[in-house]
Every structure is written in C-alpha cells, then in structure tokens.
C-alpha cells in the first residue's frame, strides 16, 4: 500500500517541532528578543505562497481578485522579511564582549 504524501509532510512537521524545541531551549535568554524578530522574519517564508498566488494564471488575468490578494501578501511578507532580518542584524551588532 502506498503512503499518503500527507503523512510524509506530517512527519516533517512533527520532527521539526522537536528540532525547534531543542534548538530554542539552547538559545541564551539574553538573545530572546532577537529570537523573536528572527522567527518573525523566517515565518515570512509564507511569501512563497504569495508569489504562487500572484503569478497564477496567464498574463492577461494577473489582476483577478485571487492574484491581488497574492500581491498584497507579497508586500506584507516583504516588509517582514527585510524588516525582520535587518532589525535582528542591528540588534546582534550591539552585543559586545567586555574589552579586555
């Protein structure tokens, strides 16, 4: 019997939750704010769906309602991607060790 592809994705999902659990517990508490901003940035990989939605159909039909929602989602996700990674970078630059 063939295995439903859904089960494969579910396996990836559940294993990733475990990976996330262990990785996040090892994050030092002083970096919890950058952790939030970077998780925010990477969750904007949802832009993948937005791009598919925006480019669906032929060139004449790119301004159908479903495409427009795609374009709007691209803007939102792009704000997040650039904003999230850059603000994280800005924060991380500030963490310095004692000058010896």
């Amino acid at each position: 019997m063939e295995i439903d592809p859904f089960i494969f994705r579910l396996s990836i999902f559940i294993l990733s939750i475990f990976v996330g659990y262990y990785v996040v517990w090892s994050v030092t508490p002083s970096l919890h704010t950058p952790l939030m901003s970077v998780t925010n940035a990477i969750s904007s990989v949802i832009i993948v769906g937005a791009i598919i939605a925006a480019l669906a159909g032929s060139s004449e039909s790119i301004f159908e309602i479903s495409n427009i929602f795609g374009f709007l989602a691209i803007i939102l996700a792009a704000v997040n991607i650039f904003g999230g990674f850059l603000v994280t970078q800005r924060m991380l630059q500030m963490y310095k060790k004692k000058k010896k």
Partner: peptide, 25 residues
C-alpha cells in the same frame, strides 16, 4: 497550516520552528 496547504517543506519546517519557539518563550 499554509505550508500544508501548499505542500511546501520550507513553510512546514519554519512554521513548526516558530510555533514551538513562541510556545517555549
């Protein structure tokens, strides 16, 4: 959830990471 809809591994992994990260915090 969207990752499952789109059958996209990157989104599923990220969603799980971010979900568990927020829960731990």
């Amino acid at each position: 959830g969207i990752g499952f809809t789109l059958e996209n591994t990157a989104l599923i992994i990220t969603g799980a990471l971010v979900g568990s990260s927020g829960a731990i915090l």
